[in-house]
C-alpha cells in the first residue's frame, strides 16, 4: 500500500456550522499532524460527526477554514476530498448492501482507476488489465482487515462488526493519507474491539494518519497519541491521554459539575 506517500497536515480554523437555529460547530480550531492517531471525544450531540461531515464535504461549513497542507478545501465536494487523500467510515454503517464484500472494496479503487464507458463496454485490453489490478488490490485490502474469506458474500448479510471492518477496507482501498473513523468500535464486543485496536495500529504503520470519533474510553486512552474533547460544538480540551483524563472541564462535561458538599 502507500508507505511512501508524502505527509498530509490537516488544519481546521474557526470552523462553524449551523442547522437552522442549532449551532453544531461554534468556531472550532485544531490540527492533525501526520503519522499520529488522534481521537475526538465528547458527549452525544457535541458535533463530532458534523465535524467529520464538514471535513469530508458532505455539506459545506458556514464559516472558517479547513486546509490540507495549506490548501483550503472547505466547500469542496466529497468526491474531490476523497481524491485529495482523505477517506472515512460512517457511524451508521453505509456499506453497499446489494454488492458483494469484494465489490464494495473495489468501489474504493474507483478513484485509482480510469476506464471509461467505451473501453469498459468493449472490454479493451487496458481496461481488462486495470480490472485485474482493481480486483487484486481490493483482495489485499480485504485480507488486511481479515475479511478475505467473506469476499463473495453480500455486504448486507455480514454482521455489524464485519460491516464496520468492510468500511475500513473500502476506505483504505482509496489509498488515503488521512483516515477518519466514525465510531469504529460502536456495537463491537470486547474481542472485536481488541482486534480493532491492533488494526488501527497496523493502519498507522502504513503511514496513514488516523482520526477517530469514539465513545469507548478504554480504546481511546489506549491507542491515541492525542485527544480532542468537544462539547456543544466547541473544543474544551486537547492533549495527551494522561492530561485529558485529569482535566476538570472534561470530567464536568461527562459527569456533570462536582458538587461541593461543604456548602450544604
Amino acid at each position: 500500500m502507500n508507505t511512501e506517500s508524502s505527509p498530509l497536515f490537516l488544519h481546521v480554523e474557526n470552523l462553524q456550522k449551523s442547522f437552522g437555529g442549532v449551532q453544531a460547530l461554534k468556531g472550532l480550531s485544531f490540527k492533525v499532524s501526520p503519522g499520529i492517531i488522534k481521537a475526538i471525544i465528547g458527549p452525544n450531540g457535541a458535533g463530532k460527526t458534523t465535524l467529520f461531515n464538514v471535513i469530508t464535504g458532505v455539506f459545506p461549513p458556514n464559516g472558517g477554514a479547513i486546509a490540507l497542507n495549506g490548501m483550503s478545501i472547505e466547500g469542496c465536494k466529497a468526491r474531490e476530498i476523497a481524491r485529495l487523500g482523505v477517506s472515512r467510515t460512517f457511524q451508521n454503517v453505509e456499506v453497499f448492501g446489494r454488492m458483494t464484500v469484494l465489490e464494495n472494496v473495489m468501489v474504493g479503487r474507483h478513484i485509482q482507476s480510469r476506464a471509461g464507458i467505451i473501453s469498459t463496454g468493449l472490454r479493451l485490453v487496458g481496461m481488462r488489465r486495470e480490472e485485474r489490478q482493481i480486483r487484486e488490490s481490493a483482495m489485499q485490502h480485504l485480507a488486511f482487515v481479515g475479511l478475505e474469506n467473506r469476499a463473495t458474500e453480500l455486504a448486507a448479510n455480514l454482521p455489524l462488526g464485519e460491516q464496520k471492518l468492510l468500511e475500513v477496507a473500502r476506505a483504505l482501498a482509496t489509498d488515503p493519507k488521512i483516515l477518519l473513523l466514525d465510531e469504529p468500535a460502536g456495537g463491537l464486543n470486547t474481542r472485536e474491539t481488541e482486534g480493532l485496536a491492533a488494526l488501527i495500529h497496523r493502519i498507522l504503520e502504513q503511514g496513514i494518519t488516523v482520526v477517530l470519533v469514539e465513545h469507548d474510553m478504554n480504546l481511546v486512552m489506549d491507542i491515541s497519541d492525542e485527544i480532542m474533547v468537544m462539547n456543544f460544538g466547541e473544543k474544551i480540551a486537547e492533549g495527551k491521554p494522561k492530561q485529558i483524563k485529569n482535566d476538570p472541564l472534561v470530567i464536568e462535561a461527562y459527569l456533570g459539575e462536582e458538587v461541593d458538599y461543604s456548602d450544604l
Binding site: 458532505v58 465536494k77 477517506s87 460512517f90 456499506v95 468501489v107 476506505a171 482509496t174
Partner: peptide
C-alpha cells in the same frame, strides 16, 4: 450500483 445503495458512501469513495 454503489450510488444506488448509498449515495453518501459512493460520494465519499470519490
Amino acid at each position: 450500483r454503489s450510488l444506488h445503495d448509498s449515495e453518501l458512501a459512493a460520494d465519499a469513495m470519490g
